[in-house]
Design a binder for these strands. Sequence first.
DNA 1: CGAGCGATTGAAAAGACTCAACCACCGTGG
DNA 2: CCACGGTGGTTGAGTCTTTTCAATCGCTCG
Lengths: 229, 229
Amino acid sequence: MLDKSHKHVSCATCGARKSSLFGSFCDHEVSSADAVKACSYYKKNQPLFIEGSFPRGVYCLNQGKVKVFARGDEGKEQIIHIAKEGDIIGFRAMFSGDPYRVSASTLEECNICFIAKEEFLDMIDKNTSLRNGIIKELSKELGDQALFITNMAQKSVRERLAFAMLLLGDIYGDEPINLTREDMANFVGTATETLIRLLKDFKEEGVIEIHTRKLEIVDKERLVKISGK
Amino acid sequence: MLDKSHKHVSCATCGARKSSLFGSFCDHEVSSADAVKACSYYKKNQPLFIEGSFPRGVYCLNQGKVKVFARGDEGKEQIIHIAKEGDIIGFRAMFSGDPYRVSASTLEECNICFIAKEEFLDMIDKNTSLRNGIIKELSKELGDQALFITNMAQKSVRERLAFAMLLLGDIYGDEPINLTREDMANFVGTATETLIRLLKDFKEEGVIEIHTRKLEIVDKERLVKISGK
DNA sequence: CGAGCGATTGAAAAGACTCAACCACCGTGG
DNA sequence: CCACGGTGGTTGAGTCTTTTCAATCGCTCG
């Protein structure tokens, strides 16, 4: 259980920072980031921002997972990305000038820091390596999404599920994967029922273990093979 | 028929430049861009770069269309983007540090200018508005791709085709859309046969006209409706 | 203990793909 | 000028994956 107060989490002691875009900060930059940010505790399933609204800053995840998703015409969610500790989200729309084209909401209890737009843009102006890191991150995501599109267009649901499980394995690390079946289906891009049937197949094939809602990968090699890459 | 010589096309007289990322260049910048770039004539179906190789510079389209695509596991192409006059391609991989994750090849005869990596990075260092333009372009594409993914995951092939026709309408402007059925299918993410059947439907519904290989949009409103947005 | 959401199962229907064959256009070379 | 070959386009039939809809189950939290 996380601390529910709005207590300030220092960037200096943030375990997630080192592997984040702010990883290269010097002491001075760390403390000035600390000074301008606001920390909040978020309950499960709480929105950070919603498609169509205008961005007012960026969110830096100290603890917990966040889904980033778009809604299709019938309102069905398509999860584009799942962010974990150390990830920064919401910066895309700050650069494009558009309103958000996706929504974000917590998948579990989270501690999340917020940095206002002006402060963030200011940091980018002053810090070349942060700026380069952002450009690199945008580029990396663009490449990932090209693969995502290709998978979506050409792979069967079974293959996509295997691929998604591998991604989720990386995101969740040691912890078991913990998502509703619906969120998982919306990540893979299929119907909930289809997803459930395929998970059952994987279980019977000894590829994963199912503990009600929590999933564990047993045979990663096999998943790689099934995913077709 | 384009000029097949490797004659230098000046950025100063390039009709495509004004609407491109280089649109904000001052005279001085235009002439220095002119000085470092190399112009080439490309035949139809000629590759610019190939997935897996490392980028050595960026390509600026003066004339013609270029497809940017990834290959799925069975080698099938998925077209991610179709670039037109004034577009700059290949810069993503220069920032991510990865090798190219997509390939690019001409869809028709083209005049294309090449700017080497160091020169381009140098231009970005020196020109803030170019740099901001690049960041904005990366962000814009990232947003477009999120929509692309959602469409791919949730829409029927018919809906996706309608959506793709609208995009192609913008890309081709006044000219008729001119792609092989296979390229078109690889853009929509479907089998060639399915695409052909759906094009026939659209024709019978009076939405498009088919002149062998060239397609013309007759009822744009209807396409918007069919695409479901 | 009960309500309610999330998970699961089954059966039927629909959408899309594959495979195989055939057509049509176009440029080439005899 | 015409026959030929090849690429790209079209059509039909059968199959298979995936979705949809309906019903049931079973945690989990007040």
